[in-house]
Structures are given as structure tokens and as C-alpha cells.
Write a protein that binds this DNA or RNA. Structure first.
Lengths: 347, 347
DNA sequence: GCTGGCACTCGATGGGGTAGAGTGCTAATA
DNA sequence: TATTAGCACTCTACCCCATCGAGTGCCAGC
């Protein structure tokens, strides 16, 4: 692949046509087909020359001598970054989104619905991360005694979601003490983000002076335990994985197993999605770009979503590299925005 | 298939040998192989005659003229019900179980671990239903005000598990009122099973007379809302689905998709597992016996598990019909017992 | 610089031949 | 009468090979 070639307007146009054609019917595209497809009146022979150049540049390749050409990852990348003409959502998709992506009592239901819509509409796999607890703010905290040294802590966050956890305390508390501790924490920390609360808590514990009375110290100590980040904090909801079994390019059982293993282990996928948290808008991993072998034949189109202008999660679509990006990209974009809206606490 | 044949000892012995052989290496079993396998000194020709009889009885069949024989569902059934010699767990498996299947704070963790062990050891898919909430007893109930008419209800069950739900009440309650309601419910219903509580609550509401004061009535009303059974109550944890992708008999993509679709829709699987709740010990569905098309190539080996002698859930293993029943059956059995033990509240 | 022509390559398809596994049937045997 | 050896038969799996069609690269001519 030597890049010292000229990429003139015509070559780009042909690359665009080739990628579009290939996305449409999945067969390697030959010069004859391309010559008919474009409005440039060029003979197959000319197009062959251009294709040879594109191949030199590593943008397309031929599976074997007498097949047509197929886009490489770089080809897709160039196509998506500079050549793609996105299609706006059709009214039906929009209607579906508006109808189903609405606020519910249970955040998980909304997330699940978003994931479901993503997979149903695109007929690929949809994925939505749960909102990062760290970034949402504390609304209310409560302690319930379970047994001697076991306390159930319950906290409600501003997305109206309830979390609970069992703490093992070093000493025994009376219900009244627990009540008092909760009251204290609510009065001091309510409204702050969980991350901020934790930070404040750690600070208080560090420079705890005598000025802080016994009860408060206990309360802060318990808050620390309660807010200890958990692995379960990082999770996502996946839908329509089975749609992926329909694609011929993923029909190799080895690969498919690897992919589904990645889905159920979650770690890799989470890592991948986390990289998209800070992206402005839609971000795309094409094939091997993700760095995960299991995703080598897949593309991932993601967009972050926000609650109160604060990015708290990511959603996306997973499918074969050969996907209708011009439809998927705007769809993922809009879904992210609407999910954010649906999760925003009605003030 | 005419059943008016004699099933003598020898035929059964040959059927057993055939099934075992087929389970072992997945190839149709011929008369010659069978003649070598058994200690009955019979020539292939004799065995062929017996096999023809077994085929007449619908216990085995041949994929085509010049292939060996393969067990039918009836054949497997007879094998499992009367011919199987189960193998006790080996010490390694037992050690793994005892080491990992221990009480934890979080029931879901224990369930997840059980599912994981089932799939890891058998190298097939493991499934464990969550304990039926209905059947566990109420330990503690608590109400927290969220906003005007929205109340968060939290209840802890005897398996130390915490459930929460948001109620929409018809009128507004003060924190004190909620506290009072919870106190009342705890004093009256604590220790009863959720099903019993619901029953009692409905009865109280039905013949609510003036003798019941306003507050109590409110409390009972809210308890009714809180205990309304939800669809989410019926759920299971599945592990190692991807193991199923390795089996050649399931390698048809159509079928596989159907199977995985069934897994993610959950309804059919739950229905199937529910049928095993009342079985004494291990229950097995072989292939089409399950009644679900998606499971036609699969067998399901299940056992119910109990908390406090009360059956609350089911666990099992899903794999190809051709599985090592003699190992899977005792393993599922023991796992169910140990899971029950791990879930039993330490009193 | 573009095009038509042409030889070439490669995968897919399908026919034909063969080897091997296993059967069912029959006649011989214990 | 139950068992066995022998034999013809059937079916699959496999390999080989010819053919076809799509598409290419290259070259000469416009």
C-alpha cells in the first residue's frame, strides 16, 4: 500500500459507488457493474485502472484474482469519514422512537427498550450501557438494619433509580442511630454526584477532627462503604444478538462463538464502549479497528447519551462491517438524544 | 413402530451399548462395532436381527440404508429410565462445587455462580431460575417517599434478598404515615410467605370493616400494590450458551438462531423450567419431548432446589440430546442440593 | 487518457467413478 | 430354533475433472 498516489475526485466517486454497491448486495463489485452504476460514462477498462490504483492505496482488495473488489477497513473509513451521505430517519422510525422511548419508573426498562429498538430497527444487535452511577447525583440515602452488623443501604439517584447494597459494619447500630446517620448524609450530600460524594467522604475521613461528632463519623464511614464502586456498576443491555447469526460474513461458527463469548464476558465490550463516552457524537469502529479479534468482522456504531447535559452512558449498534452506515449512523445519533431525554428526571 | 415385540434382556443390553457408544462418539453405530463392544459373544449378523427389532419398536433408527443406527427419543427415554448406570461425581467436581457454591450477600451472585459451574463442568449451557419470590417469606418491609404520590417500597425476604418497587399512590402520605404503615405491616405479616401475605392482604381488603382504622387500611392497600406479582419475577440466569455452538448437531444456523432466540425471549424456557418445579428430583426432557421446536435437537436435565425444605426454583443443563447423561444427571442433582444449602439463611 | 480486445485466472458447479461402511436376506450350522 | 457366514445391494463421502462464467491485467489503438 503506497499512498503517494493521487486521490482525485473521480477515484473517490468510484470508491463511493463501490462501497455502496458492496454494502447493498454483499458481492465483490466488478468493473462492469461499477461502470453501469455511476453516471460517469466510463468503460470497464478505465474503471479497472482506477480500481488498481485504489487497491494500491489499500482502500479495496480482491478476494481472489477473478472476483470483483471489496472495501478494506481503510476503504470503509474513508467512505464513512468523507464520502457518506447520511439519510435522515424516515417518519416511521421516528414515530417508533417517540412512541416507545419515553420516561418510565424504571431506568432499566427504558434502557432495555432503547436497546430493543436499536436492534429491531437495524436488524442487527443493539447495545446500551447503564448510566454510570458515578455521574448521577444522590437524591436520598437510607439505612435499614438487617442483623447485628449487617446494614442494608438504599440510595435513590436523580434518575429516580434505586440502588441497594448490604454493608458489613464493624459495630452494631440501633435503628435510631442509622436513621440519624441517614439524616445527616441526606442533609449534607443530597444533590451531589456520587463521585463528588465519594470524594467529599474520603476527604472528611482523612481530616476528621474532633469537631466532628461520633455519629457523623459513623455516618460518613458507612457512606464510604456504601459508595464503594462495584464491578456491577459497569454493565450493558444487549438485544438482538441473534440477528447477527443471519449474516453470511459472520456465519463461521468459530468466529460467531468468539463474538458471543465476548458478549457474555462483557469486559471487552464495556472497554470498547467506554472509549466512546468522551466522543462528540457518533463514533465508529470498523472491523479490526476495535482491537478485539472477536469483532474483526463487525462494526460498532456508537453515540453517547446524556442526563442533564452530563454524558452518562453510550449506546450503539453492532453488525457486520458491511452495514448500511448511512441509515445506522443517524439512527444511533437520534436514539441517543431521545434516550437522554427519556431519562432526564421530569423536574 | 409396533410394540408387540418382546424386549428381552439381550435386546436391552444391546440398546444400552448402542446408546452409550453413540453418546461417546456421535457416529451411527453399526452391528460390527456393537458386536465388539459388548461382552455377549454375538456375531454382527445376530446383532443386525436384534437391531431390526429395536428399529421396529421405534427405539433406534438409521439415518440412511448403509449407516449404523442412532437412538430415537424413545430409545433415549428407555435408556435413561431403565438402563442408565449413573456415575458418581468425581472428587474434583465435588471440590469445585463445595468451594464455590457458598452463601453470599447477594442471592444473584450465588445463582450466577451455580449457573456458571453447571456450564463449566458439563461444557454445555447451565440455567438456574431465580427463587420464586412468591414462596419465600417476608422479613421486613419499608416505605420511602419519593415525590408527591410516588412511594418507594422496599422489602427484604428471608433469603436476605432486597426487592424494591415504585408505587403510585392515590393520595399523599407523610413520612410518618409511611413509617406507621410499615410498622403495622411488619408486625402483622413478617415471617409469612409473600404468597400468604398477598392472600391475607386481599382478604383484609375485601372484608374491611370499620374496626380497621384508616392507617391500617392504607397500609394494607399499599402492601397490595407492593406485592402485585410482576413479570420480572420469573427469570433465570443462563451461562455457557456459547458452548452449544461447538456441537455439530446444533451447527445448523437456522436452528441455532431459533434456540438462542428462545433463550433471549425467555418465556418458553421459563415455561419449560416451571414444569420441573414440582418434580421429585431430576427431570429430563429429551429432544422434542419439550414441545418446543427450538429445543428439538436438545435435551434439558433439571432438578428443583429448595430453601427451607420449600422448593423455590429449578436449575438445569441444556445440551445436545447426545449428552453424557450418566454424568450430567448426578451432577445436576447434587448442584441443586448444594445451591439450596447455599441459599438457606444462616439462622 | 480512454477504450476494446484478448488471454488468463480462479471459484463454483456438477457429473462420474470409487472405496467403505453397513444393511437385509438366505442358506448353512450347532 | 437360534445363530452364523456369506453375499448382493445401497448409500454416502470423497476425489477427480471438465466446464462455465465472472472478472482481471495488459496491450495496442484511438
Amino acid at each position: 500500500m503506497n499512498n503517494n498516489q493521487v486521490l482525485n475526485e473521480r477515484s473517490l466517486q468510484l470508491l463511493k459507488a463501490l462501497v455502496e454497491r458492496y454494502i447493498q448486495d454483499g458481492q465483490p463489485v466488478g468493473s462492469r457493474a461499477l461502470s453501469k452504476d455511476t453516471e460517469l460514462k466510463l468503460s470497464p477498462a478505465t474503471i479497472r485502472n482506477v480500481m488498481a490504483d485504489l487497491e494500491d492505496m489499500g482502500l479495496i482488495r480482491s478476494p481472489h484474482t477473478s472476483a470483483g473488489r471489496v472495501p478494506t477497513v481503510s476503504g470503509y473509513r474513508l467512505f464513512i469519514d468523507s464520502l457518506l451521505t447520511v439519510k435522515p430517519l424516515n417518519s416511521e422510525e421516528l414515530k417508533l422512537l417517540r412512541k416507545n422511548l419515553i420516561a418510565k419508573d424504571n431506568v432499566n426498562d427504558v434502557i432495555g427498550m432503547a436497546s430493543r429498538i436499536l436492534s429491531d430497527v437495524t436488524r442487527m444487535a443493539g447495545v446500551v450501557t447503564l448510566p454510570k452511577r458515578e455521574l448521577v447525583s444522590l437524591r436520598h440515602i437510607e439505612f435499614l438494619p438487617l442483623s447485628n452488623t449487617r446494614v442494608l443501604v438504599i440510595f435513590v439517584t436523580n434518575e429516580q433509580e434505586v440502588h441497594n447494597k448490604i454493608l458489613h459494619t464493624s459495630k452494631q447500630f440501633t435503628p435510631a442511630q442509622l436513621q440519624q446517620a441517614a439524616n445527616y448524609l441526606n442533609s449534607v450530600y443530597s444533590g451531589l454526584s456520587l463521585a463528588a460524594v465519594r470524594k467529599a467522604v474520603l476527604k472528611e475521613l482523612k481530616d476528621a477532627q474532633e469537631q466532628m461528632n461520633r455519629e457523623m463519623l459513623d455516618a460518613v464511614q458507612m457512606a464510604k462503604l456504601a459508595l464503594d464502586p462495584e464491578k456491577s456498576d459497569e454493565d450493558y443491555v444487549l438485544s438482538g444478538e441473534t440477528n447477527l447469526m443471519g449474516f453470511s460474513e459472520l456465519s463461521d461458527m468459530e468466529r460467531l462463538k468468539e463474538l458471543f463469548d465476548a458478549f457474555s464476558q462483557k469486559r471487552g465490550v464495556i472497554h470498547l464502549l467506554d472509549q466512546c463516552l468522551n466522543a462528540e457524537g457518533v463514533q465508529i469502529f470498523i472491523g479490526e479497528e476495535s482491537g478485539y479479534h472477536a469483532f474483526e468482522q463487525c462494526s460498532l456504531v456508537t453515540a453517547p447519551y446524556s442526563i442533564n447535559e452530563q454524558v452518562v452512558g453510550v449506546l450503539g449498534v453492532i453488525g457486520p462491517t458491511r452495514m448500511a452506515y448511512e441509515r445506522v449512523i443517524p439512527f444511533v445519533d437520534v436514539t441517543a438524544k431521545l434516550l437522554g431525554a427519556a431519562l432526564n428526571p421530569k423536574t
